[in-house]
Design a protein around this nucleic acid. Sequence first.
DNA 1: AAAATAAACTTGCAAAATGCAAGTTTATTT
DNA 2: AAATAAACTTGCATTTTGCAAGTTTATTTT
Lengths: 126, 126
Amino acid sequence: MVKKGIKKSEIRSMCPISCTLELVGDKWSLLIIRDMLFFEKSTYNEFLDSGEKISTNILNDRLIMLTERGLISYTGTAKRKRYKLTKLGLELKPIIDAVGSFGMKHFEGSKEYVQQQLKGSGRKTH
Amino acid sequence: MVKKGIKKSEIRSMCPISCTLELVGDKWSLLIIRDMLFFEKSTYNEFLDSGEKISTNILNDRLIMLTERGLISYTGTAKRKRYKLTKLGLELKPIIDAVGSFGMKHFEGSKEYVQQQLKGSGRKTH
DNA sequence: AAAATAAACTTGCAAAATGCAAGTTTATTT
DNA sequence: AAATAAACTTGCATTTTGCAAGTTTATTTT
């Protein structure tokens, strides 16, 4: 069982880089946020079927955590939640952009992959 | 024993964000790179005594991995290695900058922490 | 030159995070 | 009313990280 997900983590240091990585530096958070930012995903099942195949327990855990940490929030009923980025969550965009730029420059085929992905989604070019 | 460190990872997807996170998205890589970028650290022991207290096995593992992946390289003898960022590694700066900016804006006391840290080091303001 | 120190690892074991496959529970459709 | 779907939950295996204590060879110190 995933008891508590990522540990409430007793702050490694007050370094802004370290703190930010403790907030969203796990294996999945930024990918979920990417899906919200670029592909306009908002529901559990939409997040579930992204290319990286997150598993259900982890997704559930991350959605709770990101919510607790004020990066996302939801509206709707318990069985039909719609998540969106909060003001704080939106401020992660520069990070995602920088990560994406590095990737598009250095991973062959990744730029094309993005184009493909955008075809099927809410078409958000930036 | 840390057999292989972070798995050679069978690529989760061709998404540039996902690929980049597989490259440096573990718990320590970006902190080591931060130490090189901002604090001009270059040796095993210098990395060891950063505020976040990485343990020796993990540090060793990460240094090997970052080297294998072409983000850092070293000169000097086996017992006196000096690491530096490669051209590719330097291209991670925009990511670190974005992560740092978010942190300085949202974690109270983190900006002051940076000032403190810079006092004792090679004084690199940006 | 011998002893002490230090730099760069290595080892073994424990704990935490992630992954996988298969449920369960209510709402919503058919 | 039955089938489907959305949002979880559970149990267990694997991977990754953390901790404490070595080891080995170079460099200083005495």
